[in-house]
């Protein structure tokens, strides 16, 4: 494993190795000294062309806990706003000796291109509407911690699948790990060729909920709602929002997830988001651990 660009690149064994490594590393977050010397002298560049709070901070914390040097780069206030191309930015980073580049970009496929230009590892932290593999890994990790297994788990992913890189990465990874995924969305918010994905598709949330062990709500990406994907926010919320009534219909052990940031009252009600069966805050903590595991496995050995 040299890069982490798509969740589909991970074999079952590789994915389990990442989750098991994260399991061991989770102890580090509970110690008074939350630091390991493993990546001393390695440089990790956070290259963020799109806004992000939790992913960037999470990668930064993960790299720092492994003693790597972290350089943060955001497109705002950099030469990108003067028109520098991705390739030239990449070559600049290369010259600065980056051992790993964590990239978030609005264009699907940007990490893939970047990987052909730099010698170090490339980690995809979200590219357009394509993939977000570390989010899928931390989601799988959170599910396994709460429910004890992934094999045979019934996972419903609900909402704006069309614009969601989280949904695609989760479908691919969870399929690899033996879980059964059902995508639930209005027909307008499902991507073309979704029938070729290794999952079920449904338009009816109420029919899927009682059978699910995990319900993952996706953010309605208001900034991407340019076309008329649904008649009104209110109607969307009525049909696809997780409110207390729907929540009550889940079986007792089922958990609710959300990759954040949430639109409270839209896809998820506040009461559900704050319930003990919601893993939303845990997911953030697990994100640091899982990203430590990925950074260790990509950079910790001979490279």
């Amino acid at each position: 494993m040299k890069h982490l660009i798509s969740a589909a690149d991970l074999s079952r064994d590789e994915a389990l190795l990442i989750l098991d490594t994260a399991e061991e590393l989770s102890q580090v977050s509970d110690r008074s000294i939350k630091k390991l010397p493993t990546l001393r002298g390695r440089t990790v560049v956070n290259l963020f062309f799109e806004d992000s709070t939790r992913t960037r901070i999470s990668f930064e914390a993960a790299a720092k806990r492994l003693s790597a040097d972290v350089i943060n780069f955001s497109a705002k206030g950099s030469s990108v706003s003067k028109g520098e191309s991705l390739k030239d930015t990449a070559l600049t980073l290369e010259a600065m000796g980056a051992d790993a580049v964590v990239i978030r970009h609005s264009a699907s496929g940007a990490p893939h291109r970047l990987a052909t230009w730099v010698r170090g590892s490339v980690l995809n932290a979200g590219d357009g509407t394509h993939e977000h593999p570390t989010q899928a890994l931390l989601d799988a990790f959170s599910m396994r911690r709460r429910l004890g297994r992934l094999e045979g788990l019934k996972v419903a992913i609900v909402g704006d699948v069309l614009h969601s890189r989280v949904a695609r990465s989760n479908v691919l990874l969870l399929h690899t790990l033996g879980a059964e995924v059902t995508l639930v969305a209005p027909p307008t918010l499902l991507p073309v060729a979704v029938e070729t994905w290794p999952c079920q598709v449904s338009y009816d949330l109420d029919a899927v909920l009682p059978k699910s062990d995990v319900v993952m709500m996706l953010r309605v990406q208001l900034e991407r709602m340019s076309a008329a994907f649904f008649p009104s926010a209110r109607e969307y919320s009525r049909r696809y929002g997780l409110d207390p009534d729907r929540f009550a219909r889940l079986h007792d052990d089922a958990i609710v997830m959300h990759p954040g940031p949430m639109n409270r009252g839209m896809e998820i009600s506040a009461a559900v988001a704050d319930s003990p069966r919601s893993t939303i805050v845990e997911q953030v903590a697990n994100g640091v651990t899982v990203r430590m595991a990925v950074l260790y496995l990509l950079l910790g050995g001979a490279i």
Binding site: L17, L25, L36, T38, Y296, G301, A302
Partner: peptide
Amino acid sequence: LDITMYRDDLRLRPARPLGHT
């Protein structure tokens, strides 16, 4: 006490799986 993350020869071989602490 797993010591993998503290080894001085990590860079000589591919990343190793961690033991249990």
